Simulated assay, not measured.
Amino acid sequence: MGAAVARRLALDGREVMLIARRDRQQDDGGLAMAAGGWPEPVEASVVDRPRTLRAGFSAQGAQALASYCARQEIPFRRTGQLLIARDDAEMAVLEDIKQRDPSVDLLSVADVAAHERGLRCVGGLFAPDAGIVDGDALRLALRIEAENAGAFVTEDCRLVAAYPMRRGFEVDLGGMPGELETVRCDSLINATEDYEAVQIAARVDGMRNHAPPELSGPGSKRYKLEGTAPFDRLVVPGCRGPKSAALFFSGFQGESWMDVLSESRDVAGRGDEPGTDGPRSPDFRIQGQAEHGIPGLINLFGIDARSETRAALALADAVLDALSGRADWSGMLPVPPSSLAVA
């Protein structure tokens, strides 16, 4: 996410410093983080709750991602995604999705077996707009493009504290033990993932009471499965309750992965509606001066590792629009970005 934002701001002619994480497996407190790494799933748009920032930016970002990968020759494979119904109630959920999105296909048990053998279900839904991307190659390309546009990228320090000034910020950066350096900047963008975004926000003077407590937990965990990859497509083994939080997908070399959201979510965000069970994943939140009162500070909250990749390019445009005063995303639904940087 940070590399996408740095690239977009650098292409706009701004001086940018990207503080990137060398070890993505732990946060600053030594706690395990959701694995990034290669490969990364790009889920279908039907898994997102309609009329939310998550749905809007993910749809825009996925389209931009496919174009960017083609231009940069980054490995990207369109696999499609299967949502499985385990009973008639879940099948009714998939039928509702089909009515809302004619691009997806309802599947019988035989149809599901034709896509993926061995799945026990009463039916399913196939969404073609899903796939996998080489996440490491993507981040490297974004960083290189950012640096070619003048951005400075470092993995040798971390943000210790930031203090809003009359204009801009003083930022304390920690490197080796005992080392501390202070730099000045006009704007500060917190574009980290999951609960680390809340941790970083709390280090900005004046922000402690504005960090959303509901986003203080980890967003997802990724596991590499032993043996042959069980599926060729992205597979969600259920569309209600905890099963809808799991995602199985294959890699480019035949390895298999399982990604699990820390909170269960019902497909299409039905988890908190009457007659359904389980909580839903929090929506994206682009927090600017209107919410916390600090000029030049933008926090991106709710960006879990599972959705970051497909939404990153669109969110980077949203950050630029917010800094330029073209948009205030507080409480707003996404609109077509002003200049999606894919060309």
Rank of each mutant, 00 (worst) to 15 (best):
V112K: 06
P102A: 15
D272S: 13
D321G: 08
A146L: 00
R100W: 07
V93L: 11
V198F: 00
P336I: 09
W38I: 13
G37Q: 07
S108N: 05
I189V: 15
F284K: 14
E181D: 10
G331V: 12
W257G: 07
P75K: 09
Q199K: 10
E193F: 14
P102F: 09
K221I: 01
P50M: 02
F248W: 10
P39M: 08
R143P: 00
L159T: 09
F57C: 07
E263R: 13
E255I: 01
S256N: 11
P102K: 15
S250T: 09
S216R: 02
D129S: 14
G150Y: 09
D88F: 06
R233C: 05
E95I: 13
A229D: 12
F231R: 04
L315I: 15
A245F: 02
L215N: 01
L320A: 15
D87R: 05
G13I: 03
D48Y: 15
M165G: 11
Q199Y: 01
E181L: 03
F169I: 01
K243R: 06
A149Q: 02
R120E: 13
R285D: 09
G168H: 14
E95F: 04
L333V: 10
G296F: 09
R326V: 07
D277G: 06
D48E: 04
L9G: 08
A10L: 03
G288L: 05
E214T: 07
P282D: 00
A110H: 12
D328L: 10
R158L: 06
F248I: 13
T52Y: 01
R203Y: 05
R310N: 11
E40Q: 15
A314W: 00
A20H: 14
P212A: 11
F76Y: 15
R166G: 15
K243W: 06
D205N: 07
D105Q: 13
E308V: 04
V122G: 07
F248K: 03
L313W: 01
Q26T: 15
I144F: 03
A141L: 04
P282C: 08
A268Q: 12
Q99S: 09
A311G: 05
I200D: 02
R120T: 14
P177Q: 07
S330P: 01
P41I: 15
R51Y: 00
E196W: 04
E273W: 02
E95D: 13
L333S: 14
V47K: 12
R14I: 00
A66I: 09
G302M: 06
P213I: 10
R86W: 03
V183D: 01
P230G: 05
R233P: 01
A229R: 08
D186G: 14
T154G: 08
E196G: 00
A341H: 14
D304K: 14
M1T: 14
R208K: 09
A113D: 12
D134G: 04
I298A: 05
E90R: 10
C121Q: 01
D12I: 01
Y163V: 08
L215S: 02
K243G: 07
E226W: 05
S45F: 08
D172N: 10
D259H: 15
T52F: 04
D259E: 07
V112D: 03
L106Y: 09
A92L: 14
F301A: 05
D266K: 03
S324G: 15
R8M: 00
Q199T: 02
L82C: 14
S187E: 06
L340K: 06
V46M: 04
R21V: 00
L333D: 12
A343H: 08
A44T: 02
